[in-house]
Amino acid sequence: MSESVTISTLSGDESFSAYFAKPSGKPKAAIIVIQEIFGVNAGIRRKCDKWAEEGYLAVAPDLFFRMEPGLQLDPDIEDEFNKALDLFGKYDPDDGVRDIEATIKWIRAETGVEKVGCVGYCLGGRLAYMTAARTDIDASVGYYGVMIDQMLDEAKAIANPLLLHIPTADHFVGPDAQKAMHEALDDHEKVTLYDYEGLDHGFATEHGNRRDEEGAQVADRRTWEFFAQHLG
């Protein structure tokens, strides 16, 4: 079952909507699904629904609400892709982490579910890394996170498990950035990195031209196993 819910910001002076999918029985745990630059579109909602089918409560907050509430873009349409890039350039990821923290607090207070993980894609992959470093989230997963190499100094603050999926042919995260991530994180006791040889950015999207079926299934299975282990 799915619905839209309203969550207050940490300051309490604003609120944002979130897509909310519930399992049929008692939730195993909760998972925050963090959007790409395309908003809480059909692909992100489908990821929530799939987690609910696996027994998790899933929440996808509308992180672009300050710029354009309810945004839904299709990355396979050039004008919409370019609009998403423009919004990404204007977006403050520090706001995003605070809004994810507000979502964690809302889940624990309003649903009674204590164990909370997050999984993010693209911008959301970066935010998953930042959430692992800046909040008490229980477990985090990032797919093709952008600009993580520019904030590796935050890795020392990561206290709970973090999994990062890195496609080696990512045209937004080049070889130097990938190398820096491995050098900084391979020996971190809380961080696991998986490379996907020859795959590009967006390979695990639910819909559209970017998806690589085999790669998506491998990465998603690893994510499922990771959450099963760390969210109980």
Rank of each mutant, 00 (worst) to 15 (best):
Glu36Val: 10
Asp86Leu: 09
Arg46Cys: 10
Phe81Tyr: 14
Gly43Phe: 05
Val59Ser: 00
Ser24Gly: 09
Asp79Met: 12
Leu10Met: 12
Ser8Ile: 08
Ala42Glu: 15
Phe81Gln: 10
Phe64Glu: 06
Phe38Ala: 00
Asn41Val: 02
Glu110Lys: 12
Ser4Tyr: 13
Asp76Tyr: 13
Asp62His: 06
Glu53Pro: 03
Asp62Val: 05
Phe65Asp: 00
Asp74Leu: 07
Val116Ile: 02
Val33Asp: 01
Met67Arg: 13
Gly25Ile: 08
Ala30Ser: 06
Lys105Phe: 10
Ser8Thr: 12
Tyr121Gly: 05
Asp74Lys: 09
Thr111Lys: 07
Asp13Val: 09
Arg108Ala: 09
Leu10Ile: 06
Phe88Glu: 15
Pro27Trp: 08
Arg98Pro: 01
Leu87Arg: 15
Phe81Ser: 14
Gly89Glu: 13
Asp79Val: 11
Phe38Val: 04
Gly39Ile: 03
Asp62Gly: 14
Leu73Ser: 13
Trp51Phe: 12
Lys26Ile: 11
Asp76Gly: 08
Thr103Tyr: 08
Asp95Ile: 02
Ile107Thr: 15
Pro69Leu: 14
Ala109Asp: 11
Val113Met: 09
Leu73Trp: 06
Phe81Ile: 00
Gly12Gln: 04
Lys26Glu: 15
Thr103Gly: 04
Met67Val: 14
Arg45Ser: 12
Asp95Cys: 14
Glu36Ala: 06
Val119Tyr: 04
Ala42Gln: 11
Arg45Val: 05
Met67Pro: 01
Pro93Glu: 04
Ala58Glu: 05
Ile104Trp: 04
Asp62Glu: 02
Lys90Pro: 12
Ser11Val: 06
Thr111Met: 03
Leu10Arg: 07
Gly89Cys: 07
Gly96Pro: 07
Glu53His: 03
Gly112Asn: 09
Leu123Val: 14
Val33Leu: 09
Thr9Tyr: 14
Gly96Met: 02
Trp51Gln: 04
Tyr91Pro: 12
Glu78Trp: 02
Gln72Lys: 13
Lys83Ala: 12
Gly70Cys: 14
Asn82Val: 08
Lys26Leu: 11
Phe65Gly: 03
Asp62Thr: 15
Ala30Asn: 09
Gly39Thr: 01
Asp13Thr: 04
Thr111Val: 10
Asp79Cys: 04
Ala58Val: 02
Glu53Ala: 05
Leu71Ile: 15
Ile107Phe: 08
Thr111Gly: 04
Pro23Ala: 10
Gly89His: 11
Tyr91Asn: 12
Val5Ile: 15
Pro27His: 12
Ala18Met: 03
Pro69Met: 13
Ala60Gln: 03
Asp99Ala: 14
Ala58Lys: 00
Gly25Asp: 13
Asp92Ile: 02
Pro23Glu: 01
Cys48Ile: 11
Gly55Ile: 00
Tyr56Met: 03
Gly43Arg: 05
Ala60Met: 02
Gly89Pro: 05
Met67Asp: 09
Gly12Ile: 08
Leu71Trp: 00
Val119Asn: 05
Asp94Trp: 07
Ile44Asp: 01
Ala58Phe: 02
Pro23Cys: 09
Asp74Met: 10
Phe16Gly: 02
Lys22Cys: 06
Ala29Tyr: 00
Phe20Arg: 10
Arg66Met: 11
Ile77Lys: 05
Ile32Thr: 07
Phe16Lys: 03
Cys122Arg: 07
Lys83Ser: 03
Lys47Val: 07
Gly120Asp: 04
Asp13Lys: 07
Ile104Asn: 02
Leu10Trp: 09
Leu10Asn: 14
Val97Leu: 06
Phe16Pro: 01
Thr103Cys: 13
Val40Tyr: 00
Gly55Met: 13
Gln72Glu: 15
Tyr91Ile: 06
